[in-house]
Amino acid sequence: MQIRGLMMDPVTNMPIVVLKDVDSDVVLPIWVGIFEANAIALELEKTATPRPMTHDLLQNLARGLNAQVQKVVVSELRDETFFAVIWMDHAGETVAIDARPSDAIALALRWDCPIYVNRTVLEQSKQPSTGAQTVNADEMRRWLENLNDDEMGRYKM
């Protein structure tokens, strides 16, 4: 997957990271917190900060321990919540760390490593949600797939 864009949800006014499959038109919107969206936006824009932000600190910590992030995977969708795993290499050993997708994506950008989404997550995300606040999932997906670059927002890729 690649980051297609970072935009604000016009209904909830919450940030959305839009992931797009590099081999198809499949998109996956993931609603994230303001701080995580800021961490992603800073890295997308390659904006330097005077002091390390949290995700920079995590990268520095991993490097200091001679570990390297290899990939991140949005691994599960359970009760309308996405889960992710950060896959690291430390001294030749593979380490899997549970994470929120927004944090995993922020780290993936800093490490310039691949972002994957399990196929079952993509399939589940196409299913209509049972939540009261949910807009029709198919309509939302079609809307995101058909956004042009100007509509995608400031952080289009």
Rank of each mutant, 00 (worst) to 15 (best):
C113S: 04
T120C: 11
L77G: 09
S102A: 06
A132K: 15
T120K: 08
T54E: 03
D138L: 11
L122H: 04
R154Y: 14
P29H: 10
I115M: 14
Y116L: 10
E145C: 13
L42S: 05
D23M: 05
M53E: 01
Q124T: 11
P128Y: 12
P128T: 14
L44Q: 06
K156F: 05
H90E: 11
A84D: 00
Q68F: 13
M152Q: 02
G33K: 07
M14E: 15
V121F: 03
K20I: 07
E43L: 05
D103H: 01
N148F: 06
N146W: 05
P29S: 03
E145M: 14
L58C: 12
I86F: 01
G92R: 07
P29Q: 09
A132C: 13
I16E: 00
A91H: 06
M14P: 03
D150I: 02
A108I: 03
K20G: 06
A99R: 02
N13R: 08
P114I: 04
S24I: 03
E45V: 04
R119Q: 13
V69I: 04
A137T: 15
I105Q: 11
T134A: 09
R119W: 03
K71Q: 12
A48Y: 14
Y155K: 01
N38S: 08
E123C: 05
Q127M: 14
N146K: 15
E45Q: 11
R142H: 05
P114H: 11
I40Q: 06
E145I: 07
N66F: 15
V73N: 04
I115Q: 09
L58Y: 11
F82C: 01
G131S: 13
R141S: 00
D9I: 02
A132P: 14
D138P: 10
N118T: 08
